[in-house]
Design a protein around this nucleic acid. Structure first.
Lengths: 214, 214
DNA sequence: CTCACTTATTCTGGATACAATATCCGCCAT
DNA sequence: ATGGCGGATATTGTATCCAGAATAAGTGAG
């Protein structure tokens, strides 16, 4: 099999695949990841798998015990609360900075997402809304112009996602809150955008706590 | 040479060595890190070096271009400002959480550091102060009980350190501010501790900006 | 002499084989 | 049952090997 034209590095491919498997629950928290099994299942040698492990380890998605292999990260309640708190702080920094910079490309993208989102909401297109909700967060991170912040947010968001198991909020509810944030950013109202974002994430956090501690 | 009894994984050793070389300026920003050269210089094979690269990459200390190797990360002014902002937010979360949890082991360690620090300050022992200043930040991160936050802070702190080149603040000045924060934490005054920490980091940030933009 | 093009070397990315070692699991004896 | 012993398994690390890409070196033309 030819490696093809401009194939990405295999470690990236492997890392992405593992990440999505972890996030969508195919790999349950605490389950063990044997490098042999992974490499066999994905048809690559063990070398890229090990490199992918190191990356996921640094991203906090997996935990490594020396000589005992790698397993999907499992967090306790307190750790999850901390992650939420950190995520909130970082998202606020990001949305403020994006609203202040008003990078033209990001603004155009946000307008596009806003339009597509309201159409999808009317049509009741759940999967489109889910994707747009993802775009929303990516755009707000990217709009800061900071590669570091983008990486940190993605990492923390993954770990936060890790906790929800099944998402509690419907894509429609999420979208209406997102739309308000986007409008504030487009209006260059950084403080309003931050406030709306804070409420957005805080509500979500609360509803999760409620379901987790009955 | 025998690998010995309970030696840490070589990738950790390599990553630590590279990290300190980057942080102390032995490896200048933008300089290239050939995996062959590193493995030769450190007397290990290329594999642990590559694993270490992936970790440092995720920590943001190095940047990787496909097929073009890895080089020490170089950040522009705006990125550095963002990193400082993120670090401030995370340190505040950490110091508050530590002051609220009051983990007994951490409190004991903080008392020890406080005592040793005041002695070192009197004796004018610069290197001891420098080490204690490092312990200070590690303890505040560890006191949160959150592995994730510890990892994030270490990463962000490394990248912030990355910018200073030569540190501007003397260990003594740093220490006096640190000591005040420790006392506030020991007094369970989370808000006071956070306020002192904010001022501590903010001052440092300002003095750096002053030296960088003459 | 400078610039572009071609060639050669180096380096990354990946695969594979092999050794060493630590952990895990089952079996056996008490 | 329980505790210890020994083999099976997995991780970790080394050594080679190869393909492909990037940089460096060299060469020729204008």
């Amino acid at each position: 099999m030819s490696i093809g034209e401009s194939h990405r590095a295999l470690r990236d491919e492997v890392a992405d695949q593992l990440r999505s498997w972890i996030l969508d629950g195919t790999l349950e928290p605490g389950s063990r990841l044997g490098e042999g099994a992974i490499s066999e299942r994905m048809g690559v040698s063990r070398l890229p798998v090990r490199e992918a492990f190191r990356r996921l380890e640094a991203e906090g998605l997996v935990q490594t015990a020396p000589r005992r292999g790698v397993r999907v990260a499992v967090f306790d309640q307190e750790e999850l609360a901390t992650i939420q708190e950190v995520r909130l702080a970082l998202e606020l920094i990001a949305v403020r900075k994006t609203a202040e910079r008003r990078d033209s490309e990001t603004m155009n993208e946000l307008e596009r997402v806003l339009l597509a989102g309201s159409q999808a909401a009317e049509a009741g297109d759940q999967s489109a809304l889910k994707r747009l909700n993802g775009d929303f967060h990516e755009l707000l991170a990217g709009g800061t112009g900071s590669r570091v912040l983008v990486a940190l947010l993605r990492s923390v968001r993954n770990q936060a996602h890790h906790l929800v198991g099944g998402l509690v909020t419907s894509p429609e509810d999420s979208w209406s809150e997102h739309a308000r944030v986007i409008r504030a950013v487009l209006d260059a109202d950084a403080e309003m955008a931050a406030l709306l974002m804070r409420r957005h994430l805080h509500d979500r956090h609360e509803s999760q706590r409620a379901t987790l501690t009955p």
